[in-house]
Design a protein around this nucleic acid. Sequence first.
DNA 1: AAAATGATCAAG
DNA 2: TTGATCATTTTA
Length: 204
Amino acid sequence: MNKLKREFYSRNTIQVSKELLGKYLVHHVNGKKLVGKIVEVEAYLGPEDKAAHSYNRHKSKRNEIMYGPAGFAYVFVIYGHNCCMNVVTEKEDIPQAVLIRALEPIEGIEEMAKLRFDKKLDELDRRTKINLTNGPGKLCQALGISKENNGEDLCSDAFYIEEDQAEKDFEVVSTKRVNIDYAEEYRDCPWRFYIRDNIYISKK
DNA sequence: AAAATGATCAAG
DNA sequence: TTGATCATTTTA
């Protein structure tokens, strides 16, 4: 396993999105190492992309991290109390990011269940395990990611993404992004990517 | 009959 | 987006 460096993130956003699939998101919390394999992502290509928070170079306290250097976490609150985690890409002042939409739980599953369901699960059935991280809000809850983590450097020790030198024997599927009906001509751009046949993706 | 899957809707 | 509820399909 080796940790992704800033040079990885500081490239073309579509490219980074696809390459993020199969890598491992790691967050150390409560003294535990929580790990999930990235199985679904979406690219947001501001300032042209009408679905991006940075559309038309819109900038606010919430999204300013998108304008900074790559490799930082952009975490925002959606629908009152759900969080979404993104990874900032491209060079400074190019406000683009990749939204992490789903993970496959790998390590620290007990702790994830505790964070998400607030109780111990004596038995983790297939369904419950899937429900841990098969959505952007769910994975944030399971990995203990909140708005407090907004702006954190992913080239750090407690919060990062690493890769296995091993193979990547999966097929990448690309489709329209989810829940961006307001994005007009950008609504149908095929910028959602996921691992074909993986049971942990957020939608059928 | 029970469990898995899907469609619909409200909440924050 | 998520969770809840209700309808429908699948499994055994």
